[in-house]
């Protein structure tokens, strides 16, 4: 902890202890973070909480971390414990959908109330600098010739890069169950394997590889966004005739059984928070891409994503 943050924490402690909190009227938000402290959802949830306070729509935000099973444990607790609570929020995202499909928990996401999609990150596929292959087309050509010889390196099984790899295979007419996906335990290990040329092609969120791509240690051959990412000269898969678009998005859900008016209030609170300075700073610091989507459009988006994820995972033998 830097000294200034250290001091700030101490100051905040003193303030929290000394000030009577009931003095103002804004809501006390309870934020469920269905992951252990320190991860991506945790950062998102705490940043959103800070933004809610910064935008003065929430007075106090309390966080609860409940990690496990790609968020399914936290979801179960959220659905059971905060029924009808108009001030409860839960962080979630694409990974939770994957977790629900593979883990088959006893609760369903549709029991909770969709509020908003917040951010999104797209994947990039890279080749080792000294790879004989040069473009995505080369990768596809080799994939068609011998699926086993194309070693896809990335994060754990069911991660967005894994699903994207399976989708690419399906698009180019290769059996997705035949792809040779090497699931590494942590980001660093996958990075090492790509740098060392131990895998043919690597995939990850763009920000994780940005440094290596910029320094020429990896060659980016395709991003999974619909259009080129701002300021990044890497072709999309779609441009290259591979109809694959996949983002690792994060969003928030409200408690089950809240009224339409309560849902509207919550949505407005989140939208107000998106406009706060604290949120802008968090977006910048964490390299997130804004992807705000609310109301019925968000609900439909989740349903569609759920269906397409399930289809891909079933076809590639992940489920």
């Amino acid at each position: 902890m830097r000294r200034d943050t250290f001091l700030k924490t101490m100051a905040a402690l003193a303030a929290a202890g000394a000030l009577p909190l009931a003095a103002r009227a804004a809501a006390n938000v309870k934020m469920m973070i269905p992951a252990n402290p320190g991860g991506g959802w945790d950062t998102t949830g705490r940043a959103l909480g800070k933004a809610l306070q910064d935008a003065k729509v929430a007075d106090n935000v309390s966080y609860e971390n409940k990690g496990g099973a790609a968020g399914a444990l936290g979801l179960a607790q959220f659905v059971n414990a905060s029924k009808g609570d108009p001030n409860a929020l839960m962080v979630m995202g694409a990974v939770m959908l994957g977790g629900i499909i593979t883990g088959k928990p006893p609760v369903n996401l549709s029991q909770a109330t969709p509020i908003a999609r917040l951010t999104s990150e797209y994947n990039v596929f890279v080749l080792p600098a000294n790879s004989p292959l040069k473009t995505m087309a080369d990768v596809v050509a080799q994939l068609k010739k011998d699926p086993g010889s194309v070693k896809w390196g990335g994060g754990s099984r069911g991660s967005t890069e894994h699903i994207a790899a399976a989708m690419i295979a399906r698009e180019v007419g290769v059996d997705p169950a035949k792809i040779n996906y090497v699931a590494f335990r942590g980001g660093g290990e996958a990075t090492a394997a790509i740098l060392g040329g131990n895998v043919t092609v690597g995939g990850s969120g763009y920000s994780e590889f940005a440094e290596y791509i910029n320094t020429g240690k990896m060659k980016a051959v395709g991003v999974t966004s619909a259009t080129r990412l701002k300021g990044i000269n890497v072709p999309t898969l779609k441009e290259q005739g591979i109809n694959v678009e996949l983002g690792n998005w994060r969003g928030v859900y409200g408690a089950p059984g809240i009224t339409a008016a309560q849902r509207k209030t919550l949505t407005d609170m989140v939208l107000a928070a998106m406009k706060s300075k604290a949120w802008t700073e968090a977006m910048e610091k964490n390299n997130w891409t804004p992807a705000v989507l609310t109301g019925p459009a968000f609900e439909k988006f989740v349903d569609d994503d759920f269906a397409s994820l399930r289809a891909t995972m079933v076809k590639s033998g992940m489920v």
Binding site: A16, S62, E64
Partner: peptide, 13 residues
């Protein structure tokens, strides 16, 4: 709860 910001369950909020 106060220093690390991790909520352990309490009798009150």
């Amino acid at each position: 709860t106060k220093f690390l910001g991790i909520n352990l369950p309490g009798l009150t909020q």
